[in-house]
Structure formats: C-alpha cells, structure tokens
Amino acid sequence: MNSRVPTVKQTNWISLIPHFIIMGILIFIWYQFNPEKALLLGAMTYLIISFLLRNLIPRDHRKGIKKNNKGRFKDAISDFEKSYYFFKKHEWIDKYRFITLLSSSKFSYREIALGNIGFCYAQIGNGKKSKEYYEKTLEEFPESVLAKSALNMINAIENKSAQ
C-alpha cells in the first residue's frame, strides 16, 4: 500500500555553485585523458559520485523515507533516529552537505529526521511524542518552518478539543 505522504523539498540554489565547480573539475580531469568525450565522461562521473554519496551515507534516512512512504510509520521512526544520531555525531557532513553529499537541500538531515519522527508519531496516534519531537526540532533549528507549522496545528487541535 502506497500512502500519499506529503513531501517538502526546498533547494538552496547558491549551493549549486560548488556542484558546477566540482563537475567542471571532473570534466577538466577527463579532458586530460579523452578531450572528445570529456564533457560526457565528466558529467557521468559527477552523476555516479552524486548517486553513491546520496545513497550510501544517509542510508538510514533513505530507509526511513521508504518506510514512511509505505505507511510503515512505526518502523520508520528507528531509521530516522539512526539518521539523526549519525548526522549529530558527524555534524560536518550535514553542515557541508552541498559538498560532502552533493545535496542542495535547504534542510539539514538532522532537521528532517526530527521532523519526520514527529510526523511518524502523529501518524501512529501518539500526539504527545509528536509534539515533543517538533519542539526538539525548534530547539535545535529555531527557524524550522515545518516544525512551527506542525506545532501550530497540534496546538490548534488541542485547544479545540479542550473547549
């Protein structure tokens, strides 16, 4: 069963500059060996590296997303927790993700993981835990629009049910 789970993706457009520089370097390297196919080989090398980095390093995050999309919210929580702790331990990977993972996302993996845990708890009916995780998201990422919106919705529901 494929659930219609909302996905929000925002791009940090300025982070594309290092991507083009990296691709340019790869094309230049390939130009030294094969000038006729340097553009194609450089672009293919960039795509392969990008694919490997995005699939190998944040693998727990990707597992959680897959489970989340299949509606297996309870199972996804542990994957998002593993992702959060990995990127907490290796903050530099997340901070410089536009180079280390060739990711142009505006959201850090830690912020996404915390928000996703909050979302999963809400989906399994644990509003208290959901609220805790959205509040934790705001503690670490005070500008998190996703966490602010989720907390506003939770608070509105709590206020309505209290009346």
Rank of each mutant, 00 (worst) to 15 (best):
R72M: 14
I65V: 15
A113V: 00
S108Q: 01
E81Y: 09
S83K: 05
G118D: 02
S78Y: 10
Y121N: 09
N68D: 12
I99P: 03
F87K: 05
G118H: 02
D60E: 14
D60V: 00
D60T: 07
K95I: 09
L114S: 05
D60G: 06
K67D: 14
L114M: 10
S108Y: 02
D79I: 02
L102F: 04
I57D: 01
A122V: 00
I99A: 01
F119V: 03
N68S: 11
N55M: 12
I99C: 05
I112T: 11
H61E: 10
K63L: 11
K95Q: 11
D60C: 08
G71Y: 09
G115Q: 10
G71M: 08
S108V: 00
K70D: 12
K63N: 14
L102N: 00
G127Q: 15
K66Y: 15
P58D: 05
K67M: 15
K128A: 12
N68Y: 13
T100I: 01
S78Q: 14
A122R: 13
D79K: 05
R59W: 15
Q123F: 08
D75Y: 06
F86Q: 00
G118V: 02
I77N: 10
F87S: 01
S103C: 12
I57E: 02
F98G: 00
L114V: 08
Y84H: 03
E81N: 10
K106E: 14
G127A: 12
Y109F: 12
N55H: 13
G115I: 07
K95L: 11
A113C: 02
I99L: 08
L114A: 03
F86A: 00
I117R: 08
S105P: 06
I65H: 10
K88G: 06
R59G: 04
A76S: 12
A76H: 05
D60L: 06
L56N: 02
K74Y: 14
I117K: 08
K67N: 13
Y109V: 01
K74P: 08
I77W: 08
L101Q: 06
I117Y: 09
K63C: 06
C120S: 12
S103V: 07
Y85H: 11
S105V: 04
K74N: 12
Y85L: 08
G71N: 07
N116A: 04
L114E: 08
K82N: 14
Y109T: 00
K74I: 09
P58V: 04
D75G: 05
S105F: 06
S104L: 11
Y121A: 01
P58A: 04
S104N: 15
R97M: 04
Q123S: 10
S104I: 14
R72P: 07
F87P: 06
Y121Q: 07
K106Y: 07
N68C: 13
D79G: 00
A113F: 00
K106F: 06
S105E: 08
F87D: 02
H90A: 07
F98H: 10
I112P: 05
Y96A: 01
Y85E: 10
